[in-house]
Design a protein around this nucleic acid. Structure first.
Length: 520
RNA sequence: GUCCCCAUCGUCUAGUGGCCCAGGACCCCGGGUUCUCAGUCCGGUAACAGGGGUUCAAAUCCCCUUGGGGAUACCA
């Protein structure tokens, strides 16, 4: 039988980082074994705008390179893949269970149930429904209905014995049937509940391995009861520990974003993203849709999908005692359920940052150029379409900026002065006051301007040579002139090497800006 | 409350009875290199939750305690 795994997002409007980790493990597992990975949409209670709320999730997966063989937008032989469109399948499964006596119609009111529950609590006993309003025959049902009661369908869970199953992460699991409730599988209005739907879907989609978050571990017995009742084969199970909040073992939640922003490291990551967005004129952001718990954040700011995947993979999984960096191909090759950790792992923004850093360092310049152009365009530093001479120039700029570019959006921090029109060129006032304003700085700048003006070959090598000669002649240290020079031509004190800046700016622009600085 | 799961540096982890007075990575702290920043190089701090067993030997096995999480919904 071929390996088939699935991930079942509900259309919430955004892709959560913890969900990606679960999806990633499913995807890696299927890809390694040459199987299929599919997406099923849990939209049973979402109502309208499903498509709208689903789009960011699909976009997120596509951006990350997690592709699905069956599901929304790609279809597949076992569809529909939306739970909201599968009610007939669920209802016929309920009918089978009813016919086999493995489920029953129940007419208890919520109040009656609540009373039983409270009674059990008072006696410090585990609650177990008395089945007082259980209708096993049509007559009983009719009698209850005549009283105006609404009927639901419940599972008739055995009250003795054990449910045993094996889990790839947890090992052998044993649960007492007597601890299970007679869970409702169908509401009075005929709609069905998650556990039933999930089991039916997994069977219809021929899912071989159910790889999901550990919160479903204790739901597994009731699902096994359903699938056995339906005569389905049992899939393999693997329950993954969840991704926890930064610095705690609580499950990472999209609702607690405000709280996470109080974490300094999380905040820093967030702020760096906001800064880049602001430069692109997208500054008015809501933390509900733009923050480091949501995948869109990383796409917008220009992270590398491979870095995120690499980080997420090592959250609850390891290859050995030293391997950290893996390409996507290596992830697929090495992944194994047996090496998944049992304890929850907390999300560490700084560590993610360090993966991004290393993946970026290994990335080919050509790819950086292609990826950074849209950022420059969004910040209105480059026109659309891009003039052909920009390619080589941008390549040199990116080379010069080197490892300073941590994310694609960083190009805006290191290259604006290369692209800005002369009339829009501005100085950072603090840097200018410190590095250019002092009279001795201006003197040196003026003298060095003359040297630059006399140069023919305005390239890195000759520029460096000229500057070295200059400091020797003036009996100064390199630091006495280089900072002044940098601020004069780039407007700020931080950036690529000065010789690179000078050469890339070109003689005309450099002289113009030095004059502007001297006149200021 | 009841049932189930989990527990190694601040964080992610290696460790499946002797190779571990516990290894790697991130962070942090020193120092070298460099025109700034970034990077890079060298070095450092830092953990087996606690208590009982079992064993010649325990981070590793067992029990208890503690702490955290999950399930107990006509949520998914």
């Amino acid at each position: 039988m071929s390996v088939r795994t699935r991930f079942a997002p509900s259309p919430t409007g955004f892709l959560h980082i913890g969900g990606v980790r679960t999806a990633l493990f499913n995807w890696l597992f299927a890809r390694q074994l040459g199987g299929q990975f599919l997406l099923r949409i849990d939209d049973t209670d979402a109502g309208r705008n499903v498509q709208e709320a689903l789009q960011p999730i699909l976009d997120g997966f596509r951006w990350l390179g997690i592709d699905w063989d069956e599901g929304p937008e790609v279809g597949g032989p076992y569809g529909p893949y939306y739970q909201s469109q599968r009610l007939p399948q669920y209802q016929s499964a309920v009918k089978v269970l009813l016919e086999k006596g493995l489920a029953y119609r129940d007419f208890a009111t919520p109040e009656e149930l609540k009373a039983e529950r409270e009674q059990a609590e008072k006696e410090k006993k585990a609650f177990l429904y008395s089945r007082k309003w259980m209708a096993e025959t049509d007559e009983q049902a009719a009698r209850f209905a005549a009283e105006g009661r609404q009927g639901v369908v419940r599972l008739k869970i055995p009250r003795e014995g054990q449910c045993k199953f094996s889990d790839h992460v947890r090992g052998e699991c044993v649960f007492e049937w007597s601890r299970e409730q007679d869970h409702v599988i169908q509401r009075a209005d005929g709609t069905c509940l998650y556990h039933l739907a999930s089991v039916v879907d997994d069977f219809d989609f021929k899912i071989s391995h159910v790889i999901r978050a550990e919160e479903h571990l204790s739901n597994t017995p009731r699902q096994i009861f359903i699938l056995q009742g339906l005569g389905y084969p049992q899939p393999e199970y693997a329950h993954l520990p969840f991704v926890a909040e930064p610095g705690s073992h609580n499950k990472l939640s999209k609702r607690k974003i405000a709280q996470y922003l109080k974490n300094p490291e999380f905040k820093r990551l967030y702020d760096s993203g906001v800064e880049i967005m602001t430069r692109m004129g997208k500054g008015n952001l809501s933390a509900d849709t733009f923050n480091p718990v949501i995948v869109d954040f990383y796409r917008e700011v220009g992270y590398l999908p491979s870095a995120i995947l690499n980080y997420l993979m090592l959250l609850g999984w390891s290859l050995d005692d030293k391997t950290e960096d893996l390409t996507v191909e290596e992830m697929i090759r090495h992944f194994t359920l047996a090496r998944v950790t049992k304890a929850p792992a907390s999300f560490d923004p700084k560590k993610l940052w360090s993966f991004q850093d290393r993946h970026m360092q290994k990335l080919d310049v050509k790819k950086k150029v292609a990826a950074m152009i849209p950022f420059l365009q969004a910040a209105k530093l480059l026109p659309q379409p891009v003039p052909c001479e920009v390619g080589p120039k941008l390549t040199r700029i990116i080379d010069a900026a080197g490892d300073r570019l941590k994310v694609m959006g960083d190009i805006l921090n290191y290259s604006d002065f290369f692209f800005v029109k002369e009339e829009d060129f501005l100085y950072d006032e603090t840097d200018f006051a410190k590095r250019v304003s002092p009279p001795q700085s201006k003197d040196l700048l003026e003298k060095f301007r003359a040297v630059l003006a006399g140069m023919q070959d305005f390239e890195v090598g000759p520029l460096e040579e000229a500057l070295k000669k200059f400091i020797e002649a003036e009996h100064i240290k390199i630091g006495d002139i280089v900072h002044t020079l940098r601020v004069a031509v780039t407007g700020k004190s931080v950036g690529p090497g000065v010789y690179d800046c000078l050469a890339l700016l070109g003689k005309v622009v450099c002289l113009k800006r030095i004059d502007k600085a001297l006149a200021k």
